[in-house]
Amino acid sequence: MEQNWDDLRLFLAVAREESLSGAGKLLRLDPATLGRRMARLEKSLQTVLFVKSPQGYALTEAGSDLMQRAERAEQAMRAATAGVPVQSDQLTGQIRVGAPDGAANYLLPQVCAAIAAENPGLDVQIVALPRVFNLSRREADMAIGVSAPTAGRLVVQKVTDYHLHLAAAESYLAQHPEVSAVTDLQGHRMVGYIPDMIFDRELDYLADLGVGRVALASNSVSVQVRMIQQGGGIGVAHDFSLAATPGVRRILTDAVSLKRAFYLIRHADDRRNARLAAFAEALAVGLRAETARLEAATAGQAAPKA
């Protein structure tokens, strides 16, 4: 029996999220309503698509087969709409961007606000989470990453390099022994990531410096920066974050200077979507410019008098 696209769209969400609640949040539908729709779909197909348990919804063999066909239909729908001419150069609709919270807190607000100002019909959602986003499950339309993924059907574009240095509050430095070499860090309180919550090897800065104990830790970059600003200790901070963090300065810049990169990651199926491509280009241009602007502002801050 032929199924309409709406049935397949809901089915794909449940199959990818493996739960009614997860799919319901994604689709903004009540889980009970979604459950009834899945039961109706199974009845119309006269087959069982899911094995239901307290752990969630797992696909049966028939469900896996339908998922493959539904994903082909999804790709065909995207391909059919990608080339539809628009009546205006402006972007419209909703676009969701996933990003680690450093980029989400210090860069994306300015960049996305500027894009939205030029496109009044556009709704931009920023999902700030300290983890890798799963674009296959459509957690976001695109994501910013700190390393280039090597698995999955993804399109990866390097956007820009960014820099990090050790930093501390003037108040902390005034009350503690001088830091003139990396070895001096052993006698200071360190601020950094919670070790078992580092979601990308590129973020394990302190381990590379031989720091064992992290006295003040958070999985959030912005929380770490606030800890540093409050005189909590010494930590590695993004240069772009320090432009908006008065009372904090970089230290040991000649000895410790880290460089990382931001990557824009999109699902391969979306490469022909003109709307998402236009937004991705605007986002990449904005991120490069804003990172450069803030890093220049940080580098230009006056050094304290000896």
Results as ranks from 00 to 15, higher is better:
V156H: 05
G121R: 13
D123T: 12
G98T: 06
T81D: 11
L107C: 06
V97T: 07
A168F: 09
V182A: 11
V97E: 04
L107P: 01
A168H: 06
P195W: 00
A167P: 02
L108Y: 08
V111K: 02
T183L: 11
I126T: 09
I95V: 14
E178W: 07
L185W: 04
A169W: 06
A99N: 06
Q125V: 15
Q125S: 11
D141K: 06
Q94A: 13
Q75K: 15
G145S: 14
E118F: 04
V159E: 03
G192N: 10
A99H: 04
M77D: 12
P195L: 00
A80E: 15
K158A: 14
G83H: 12
A117Q: 15
G121V: 13
R78N: 00
G93W: 11
M142D: 00
A80H: 06
L91Q: 03
N119K: 07
V124F: 03
V111R: 04
A148W: 07
M142G: 03
P100L: 12
L185T: 08
N134K: 13
M142H: 03
L107H: 05
I95Y: 01
P120D: 09
G93N: 10
V146Y: 10
G121W: 15
L91W: 05
L185N: 07
A79I: 08
D123Y: 00
I95S: 02
T150P: 01
G98I: 03
G83I: 10
L107E: 04
G152E: 05
Q157T: 15
P177E: 13
